[in-house]
């Protein structure tokens, strides 16, 4: 575990010491504040609106950060050639994959939590503490963390065999498709038949179901927390999905031959 945490620490220090990350965070923070306070849609003052727009922005930012950070961890090591000195230590490739994932996920979660804190402050400022259901907020944040875990694992998986830009693009496309198309697929499955139906059904079950983690509506409209069993089942689904992706990432990375030229 010490070795995994050591690798995680490298990801943290890399992020903390790069100026572009701060610029991105400050920009996103400013954007979030502007969206919420500038009353673009003429609905200002409505706490519901603040929550709705703020949560959408927070999900969007978390998504961008997760993909951006997870997809660069491994390719960077290869391009710089730092991977050689690292793997010459008694570190296994599994430890490397897990350490990098943990680094990407924890950094993303920390930044996302900062956005939630900002949003919470704005909601309380506009509507008082009554405008916020603590239990739903906690559930929502934890499930959002699970989504980020899956996203980081997906990005890391693609980056084991691809240039970081290609991996990021693929992760964006796939996760966007999962988010937008999957919830509409049951209707499609009912109509499709034959091999077409099988294909649609395979895609439906294979892609991550991000929609079940999405508590935004509950948070916005104060519908109350979901029951504990459902909540835990969804978390478990997230954990298993992440573990599976990491296992595939390890398989892809296990015997990889590195070459700087491939990626430069």
């Amino acid at each position: 575990m010490t070795k995994v945490l050591c690798i995680t620490r490298i990801v943290w220090l890399d992020m903390l010491r790069r100026k572009d990350v701060y610029v991105l965070l400050i920009l996103l923070g400013a954007l979030l504040t502007a969206l919420v306070s500038l009353n673009i849609f003429g609905l200002g003052g409505l706490v519901v609106y603040v929550k709705d727009v703020g949560l959408l922005a927070t999900w969007g930012f978390g998504w961008i950060l997760a993909v951006h950070i997870a997809c660069r961890c491994l390719p960077q090591e290869e391009q710089r050639g730092t991977i050689y000195a690292l793997l010459a230590k008694p570190v296994t490739r599994l430890q490397l994959v897990v350490g990098k994932w943990l680094g990407a996920w924890s950094v993303t979660c920390a930044a996302t939590l900062a956005f939630y804190a900002l949003l919470t402050a704005m909601v309380v400022f506009q509507g008082g503490t009554a405008a916020l259901d603590g239990a739903v907020l906690i559930q929502g944040v934890l499930l959002h963390g699970a989504v980020l875990a899956i996203l980081c694992a997906l990005g890391l998986l693609f980056s084991t065999r691809m240039h970081q830009d290609a991996a990021a693009t693929l992760t964006y496309v796939l996760s966007f498709a999962a988010f937008i198309i999957l919830p509409r697929m049951p209707g499609l499955m009912a109509r499709a038949s034959g091999w077409h139906g099988t294909l649609v059904s395979i895609v439906y079950h294979l892609l991550p179901h991000f929609e079940i983690f999405d508590m935004r509506k509950r948070m916005v409209h104060d519908w109350g927390a979901v029951n504990g069993a459902t909540f835990l089942t969804v978390l478990l689904y997230g954990a298993v999905y992440t573990a599976l992706l990491l296992a595939i990432a390890w398989l892809a990375f296990r015997k990889k031959r590195f070459s700087r030229e491939n990626l430069a």
Binding site: D14, R80, G81, T82, P90, V91, R260
Partner: peptide, 29 residues
């Protein structure tokens, strides 16, 4: 690899670390 020390052909390392931090990380591994 417990008892090996290795210098790669094109040595490069984490440029955002200080020399001492790099050595600490290497020792922790």
């Amino acid at each position: 690899r417990e008892r090996i020390g290795y210098l790669p052909e094109h040595p490069d390392t984490y440029r955002f670390l200080t020399g001492r931090e790099l050595l600490r990380m290497a020792g922790k591994l």
